[in-house]
Amino acid sequence: MPDPRAGGARPLGRRRLWLALVTLLALTGGGVAVTALATPSKAPAGDTDTKGPPPATAPVTRGDLTDSSSRDGTLGHLGERKINAGGPGGTLTWLAPAGSVVERDERLYEVDGEAVRLMYGDEPMYRTLKAGDKGKDVRQLEENLAALGHTGFDVDEEYTDRTAAAVKRWQKSHDLKQTGTVGPDRIAFAGSAVRVKEAGPDAGAGGQGRIAPGDRLATGTPVLTVTGSERVVTFDVPAAEAATARTGTKVTVTLPDGTRLPGRVTAVGRTATAGDDPQDKTPKIDVTVSFDDPGEVKGVDQSPVTVELTGETRRDVLSVPVNALLALPDGGFGVQVVENGTTRDVRVELGMFARGRVEVSGDGLSAGAKVGVPS
């Protein structure tokens, strides 16, 4: 066994080092702190190296090091749901066009020339509401009436004569018969404004066609497929890496035209499922990103985008390119410092790996020093 003090033992080749790093990064996810890795009991500060200079050098830098990762995502809209016919049926005479945004009290579709309008709420419109009724759907209706300026009642879960009077004023504003009652033949609830994705499938055509004005509707017929009006990005991560995309994680989204916009993770799936790729059955979790400024988002629906997730940040640390690392004979890691035409191997402790660099610390290292790297 050669004696290191006699100069017979040299740092191991970078090929073996890369094998060690590949294993290390696979185990850690490629972006975590790995401090005091394989620190030996003896740690010489560094011996002068008599061999020639390395083919290239890179500087040791001091600054902030941020762990980030990129994912392929898809630009789309928030959520997707069906709007079903709620009335007794009839002939479809008008549909909100695909791509349009429908807001509170605007038309979704018409049956026999009579409009069904959107109101905001999570409870479905499943019955005709009248004085004496109680429930969450009553509160939803009253909240919408109040938002539209038809007031004069208490917003609660009880449909009173005052609620009926407000309904009559709403009906008058749309030239409807003023009955003071309202049902699913006039109103459909959704959580917010919706964007029309497409017309509903034609059940009579075996689901192969799309309904259109002139078609007959029955109660429960899917009329429209809608999404939320907010632009979002969706992507997936392997279940083992779910911690990299927690709710609230800041991201930067690169759109197809190169525009970079900030956002954050707003939803993370709770169930891991295998993807559609037959070559990759790794369980994955769906992640949704919302933009900080949705009005700045441009791009065709279902366009591919890149999502950069920002992780942990180490402040004011020294770092070197990962390929500057050398595997030392006794199991530690080092770098080859080039100074005044000579080289010396300096043992280092490793910290965070990020963007092709690694946090390092050790005696004899300072910002601006040159370290050897492959050409």
Rank of each mutant, 00 (worst) to 15 (best):
S70L: 08
V60Q: 07
N84M: 09
P4S: 10
R315Y: 11
D72C: 02
K51G: 14
G295D: 07
S366M: 05
R107A: 06
A354G: 10
N340L: 14
G183W: 08
A38H: 06
T254Q: 13
L318Q: 13
L92A: 03
I187C: 06
E103D: 15
D122T: 00
R260P: 04
L224F: 05
A58F: 07
P262V: 10
M119V: 05
V335H: 01
V305E: 11
L92M: 09
M125F: 10
I83Q: 13
T254G: 12
E143D: 06
T57R: 05
S69A: 13
D72A: 13
D137Q: 04
Q302N: 14
V307C: 12
D175H: 10
V32Y: 07
V335K: 07
T259W: 04
A354C: 08
E230K: 03
D292C: 02
P222Y: 03
V337Q: 09
H174K: 15
S100Q: 10
V101C: 10
D293C: 00
G121N: 06
I187E: 03
G228C: 03
T310R: 15
E123V: 00
G46N: 04
P278H: 07
G263N: 03
G152W: 11
R139F: 03
I211G: 02
V32G: 10
E110T: 12
M352E: 09
L21C: 11
D286I: 01
Q208H: 03
G220D: 12
G362T: 07
A188V: 02
L326R: 11
G214R: 11
D286P: 11
R195Y: 06
P59C: 00
G46K: 00
D137R: 02
E230N: 01
S290N: 01
G121S: 04
T234L: 01
S375N: 15
G258H: 07
P213N: 12
V360P: 05
R117F: 13
K298P: 03
G30Y: 13
D137A: 06
T252A: 13
G275H: 00
